[in-house]
Design a protein around this nucleic acid. Structure first.
Lengths: 192, 192
DNA sequence: GCGATAAGATGATGATCATCATTTTAATCT
DNA sequence: AGATTAAAATGATGATCATCATCTTATCGC
């Protein structure tokens, strides 16, 4: 049952979005092509008309999620002109974000899988991480530019690590403690 | 071909160690029971005589790796009485550690998988994280005890996040930059 | 409008995997 | 020593999965 070109493009879009959420929720290996297609209201058959392989889809879904994250961070920064860094902390280290990995940070969800992937995927991730670091560097106070850059890199690592550990300890008191401690210490480290 | 009780215990030990390395290198789902047994120089058949399930093995291997990590951190701290925190940073955020996940930190390797696992696994991980945080808190300067605890929690998150991102960006210049920036900023945040 | 074409559905295929059953063989117990 | 037992090997089993082949049907180019 052929559909229009626009319909097909919309379908591909839905597949990429569904994959983006499911990969983040369950990992690259934790979800199958058939289930992704089902989540996009399609059957598994059409998959290889849209993508060369599951890895191809993973790459596209990751890139889209990274671009969305950058846009999202830009919005948060733009929405809090006085305290952009504090606003980012509040969003990123919230229980809400911790409890919704499917719609959350790609890096916190898929860095481990990425570390085990090929160079192409790792390069793409490095680019995405660098983009968020750039946004952070703009949102951070600091005397010299290299100092701001260094602080931004370290802050990025702290954000991702705190979210990941909070998720790994999910359901224990430590989970909330990690989010709070990371937020407070990061704020303090920026001359609070 | 039956073996002695000690031999069987040694075999089980080798299985747990092999699993600990392979799980860290490839993730819980990235390696099969048969390959783990092969790495322990056994065939797959005896597996269920030693473990109730693959999950059971994953739990035991994780617990052992966490205990080893705590002992390792204690050793590092004891070996650098003047600057225990700096010594931990140097070990943890080294390219050597980044490039050898199979023998490295369980939390950096398996937190994402753990976040997707059941409450039992998450509780075990929370306990392991808390143990390392305790060691960090002792190695950190700070006026009050709660302040040290808070700094330790945040530092733990920063360490794990930096290692994970450095691995995800492995092979790019950003990877080294992350390790360096995290080390320098963490040192600075402890009154350098 | 008609023929070429391509999207999506249905339904293999072969590989991988966790788990289990059976068999072999050596250690432990009496 | 002989009987018992348990560790490990061999070899299913059924499930899941990525990928591909084929078929149907509606769109698009003319």
């Amino acid at each position: 049952m052929r559909v229009s070109r626009e319909q097909a493009a919309a379908n591909r879009d839905r597949i990429i979005d569904a994959a983006g959420a499911l990969f983040r929720a369950k990992g690259f290996g934790g979800i199958g092509v058939a289930d992704i297609m089902k989540a996009a209201d399609l059957t598994h058959g059409g998959f290889y008309g849209h993508f060369a392989s599951k890895d191809d889809l993973a790459a596209q879904a990751s890139k889209r999620a990274m671009a969305r994250a950058a846009a999202n961070w830009q919005d948060v920064v733009a929405g809090a002109p006085g305290e952009p860094f504090a606003a980012l902390l509040k969003h990123y280290l919230s229980p809400r974000h911790r409890d919704d990995p499917a719609n959350g940070c790609v890096f916190a969800a898929l860095s481990a899988d990425t570390a085990r992937s090929g160079k192409v995927v790792r390069d793409a991730f490095a680019e995405g991480i660098a983009e968020l670091i750039g946004i952070l560097a703009e949102a951070i106070p600091g005397r010299t530019k290299p100092a701001r850059r260094r602080k931004a890199v370290a802050a990025m690592a702290a954000l991702v690590g705190a979210l990941m550990l909070a998720r790994a300890a999910g359901g224990t008191p430590l989970s909330d403690e990690i989010l709070d401690a990371a937020r407070r210490e990061l704020l303090a480290s920026m001359g609070h």
